[in-house]
Amino acid sequence: MMESNLSKIEPVLDRYAAEPGSLITILQHTQEIYGYIPKDVMYRISERTGITPAEIMGVATFYSQFRLKPIGRYLIMLCQGTACHVNGSEKIAAAITNELGISDGETTDDGLFSLKSVACLGCCSLSPVMMINGETYGRLTPDKAVEILRSLRKESENK
């Protein structure tokens, strides 16, 4: 197992470890710092907070925001809201899967893209919608979605 730089989480723990009920907040910071929630960091959290590792694992696997594995450079969050569904989000999902060869929750072999279905992003009027690294893409068609992915790939190759 890769070892994480535990010193990065210490300030977060200094701030929250003693405050009851802050486990979710701590895990959110952990994910911000490391991109996901590494196991050794969870043990560190356990040491500092006194919360058992089993409980931390329970919380980390309950909420869909948390990831226990690193993700690709581009995180495609495909909205699963009702409006998106009515406007054909399933076809967008199929097009993405077809283009990248990954299904929900998976990352491409080159580590470039991760696909994640998410609950409503709240941009219902632009449905169907996906969000990639904070940028929202609306009124998608399968073609348009594929185009966006290809341009991101190109962009990363040029870097």
């Binding site: 196991k39 058992t52 089993a54 309950f62």
Partner: peptide, 25 residues
């Protein structure tokens, strides 16, 4: 007073596991 097993995941796929499957620990 041990808390060494816990619920993992949610919904239908929830299972009960020892922390991280880490039996020796």
């Amino acid at each position: 007073g041990k808390g060494i097993i816990g619920l993992v995941g949610r919904g239908f796929t929830t299972v009960i596991k020892p922390e991280f499957d880490n039996v020796p620990e």
